[in-house]
Design a protein around this nucleic acid. Sequence first.
DNA 1: ACCTGAACACCGTTCAAGT
DNA 2: ACCTGAACACCGTTCAAGT
Lengths: 213, 213
Amino acid sequence: MPTRTGRPPKISRDAILAAAHRIVDTEGPDALTMRRVAREVGTTAMALYHHVRDKDDLLRLLLDDYAAGVPLPDPVSDDPAGRAVEAATAMRAALAPRPWIVDVLRADDLLARRALRFPEAIIDAFMTGGLDAEDAVDAYRIIWHYTAGEISARAAATRRRTDDRLTYREQVFTGLDPAELPRLAALGERWEELAGRDTYDKGLRALVHGLLR
Amino acid sequence: MPTRTGRPPKISRDAILAAAHRIVDTEGPDALTMRRVAREVGTTAMALYHHVRDKDDLLRLLLDDYAAGVPLPDPVSDDPAGRAVEAATAMRAALAPRPWIVDVLRADDLLARRALRFPEAIIDAFMTGGLDAEDAVDAYRIIWHYTAGEISARAAATRRRTDDRLTYREQVFTGLDPAELPRLAALGERWEELAGRDTYDKGLRALVHGLLR
DNA sequence: ACCTGAACACCGTTCAAGT
DNA sequence: ACCTGAACACCGTTCAAGT
């Protein structure tokens, strides 16, 4: 049994992650600062740097934890299109309540290690549907971009709704010149109502259909 | 001619915007702080608050300026699908070099006032293609989500490429269990190459086709 | 009316020192 | 080996005072 030398640890990476989870779930991602996490585990912010490389590292670890807990339901469709839709819908359902995740991994159009079941299922569905590996990867990435964009937009819209100044969009729509922008002018105030609709599924089905055609 | 009273202004909103443009174009959006803008126009940060409400307001004004300068080329296609693709491609081309814009207006799936030509053209194409107003708005919003997601992802990927630690994704791909994730394991290192491809057009065409079907 | 200085309440991170 | 305190170099914004 190897001898550990030096001062015994007061805190652990697990304790840090648990605290981070608590904070982000109850107070949102903006409340997640190094100082706040430190307070929660009962140390100074600087002690954290002994257990995680930096804040980005913390976020990534947090993400991987979430990913592990999200189920990918067994497919119920027989056809490839249906299976792709199911997997993408599950992926979106997992992310929608935690939109900050999208911001963390935006770049990696691949999800965290323990969430790879989602791309796997989607790529598999497309390959079963007759696409070769290249086209299936393209299809997955296209769906990822669509999903990430939709989640970000919805999250921002929700944020704005709690804001006072939802006036901007109304303001944009008053006094549109029908000669210049006939379609938008005709829509008028209906935009507000139409833009609130959840169109994810509609877009997803169009996308999958178009990609498999 | 109305008599203006009080101290004459040293700076103007135009001067502030011009400075902000200079900063964001040469040093990127992260360099755009109130203090930095103030230094550029030769005042203190607090003087700015007399001309813009807050930083968000400044960003929105900046955005509107950009929007005014971006051309929407005349359509060349006869068919509605082609015109929708053209307008969306122009919109993406306008945004791609300035991905921070997407972050500013994420919520408003409608663009800034002076950029309304883009949604107008896209909605018009879909309505010409036989969709009713509701479906055309849905179609536009779906395309917007896809476009915003793609731009964000590409911007983040570029940022990461200049980073040192592009190791994370490689790391994820080493030692995948082929029993658990057969498709991804088979892809192996090819992911890196495949994920670099520009798939915007492919996805856009699939989407437009699926939406008009 | 417009501008200034000082201040508030924060950030992430580094670094030298302590146990 | 692990933790601490002080410090660095920032943020956006408020507020009272000056011109």
